[in-house]
């Protein structure tokens, strides 16, 4: 086998083997590249269209003159957004939910995943089965709503932070990470040094788990920033609305905004409203977009860690 390989290599050489790919293979490669180019365009063009529209003048957008480059460049929509109390409040609320929710969720996830990762932790298999079961069978919307109501979370900020605080998938990722990357010898050493269970977690395990904590934090932050379902179901008070609900009211339900005085102004308001939608889409996606380089790296890692155990 090895002799065959070397003789083959000698004949063509490593560089030549790349050049002398059969015609069929080169053709396949070209087709593949073209297909990927089409895919790239399909994904990218709608995004470019949105950004271009958001930077165009209201008149151009309403005349449908915008394609993939801003027409009559204008920042009016963005200025309007920055002066809108409702949107700013939503932004502020979402920042709170994302920050607090992430802290709560990561803490609780580690609190259950770490013990589950210890082989000597009695009852871990039963506990894990009970967790997995909640993935397969859920109580459903109405019964969950009743519980949230009974514990008095309805129409409070806690309603968005607590009822969906722990993701079972995230627990699996964390547990797999702890089990695979913290060697047993470390636990033995910690025990010999007389460290308690909590002390071991704090001083040995967590410092070694920064990549995991980053993955979890990003996952929960993105979830909190993007979700609207819990807010739709549990919140009535507009002051508590996260950005996504505000967006929905403006973007999808078309709630009419402040009346203008004269007709020309009214016309302009209507035209502006359309550009405003494009700008809002950009502004609301901005925080996640800015985190995107980190997200892309860490989410991939998270997907891999999870995939190990499937």
């Amino acid at each position: 086998m090895t002799t065959m390989l070397t003789s083959k290599l000698r004949r063509t050489g490593p560089a030549a083997s790349k050049v002398r790919e059969p015609l069929g293979d080169r053709l396949v490669l070209i087709v593949v590249r073209l297909m990927l180019l089409v895919v790239l365009a399909i994904v990218l063009l709608p995004l470019i269209y949105i950004v271009a529209s958001s930077l165009s003048s209201p008149a151009a957008v309403n005349a449908g003159r915008v394609r993939f480059w801003p027409v009559e460049f204008s920042l009016e929509a963005y200025q309007t957004i920055l002066n809108n109390a409702e949107i700013l409040q939503g932004y502020y609320n979402s920042l709170i939910y994302a920050a607090a929710g992430t802290v709560i969720s990561v803490t609780l996830t580690v609190a259950i995943a770490y013990p589950l990762s210890r082989k000597s932790f009695y009852g871990r298999n039963v506990l894990m089965t009970l967790l997995i079961f909640t993935m397969l069978f859920s109580g459903g919307l109405i019964p969950t709503y009743m519980v949230v109501q009974d514990v008095g979370l309805l129409d409070t900020r806690w309603a968005l932070l607590i009822p969906n605080a722990i993701g079972v998938w995230q627990v699996i990722i964390a547990r797999t990470f702890f089990a695979n990357s913290i060697p047993d010898e470390l636990y033995e050493a910690a025990m010999l040094d007389g460290a308690s269970g909590m002390r071991t977690l704090r001083s040995v395990v967590l410092p070694l788990s920064k990549p995991l904590l980053a993955v979890l934090a990003l996952m929960y932050t993105v979830y909190q920033w993007n979700t609207y379902f819990d807010a739709l179901v549990y919140l009535k008070d507009p002051d508590l609305f996260p950005l996504q609900i505000v967006l929905r009211n403006i973007l999808i339900l078309n709630t009419p905004r402040t009346g203008a005085v004269d007709l020309a102004q009214q016309m302009h308001q209507i035209q502006l409203a359309n550009v405003l939608r494009y700008a809002l889409i950009v502004v609301s996606s901005l925080p996640v977009l800015m985190m995107y380089p980190f997200i892309a790296r860490h989410f991939t890692k998270g997907a891999m860690v999870g995939a190990v155990k499937g």
Binding site: V43, P46, L47, I50, V222, W225, N226, T227, Y228, Q244, L247, R248, L251, I252, R277, L280, I281, S284, S285, V288, L289, Y292, I295, A296
Partner: peptide
């Protein structure tokens, strides 16, 4: 990237 865009935004788009 689109995976990280919220549902509300995707539907608006």
């Amino acid at each position: 990237a689109p995976y990280f865009i919220s549902t509300v935004v995707v539907v608006s788009m």
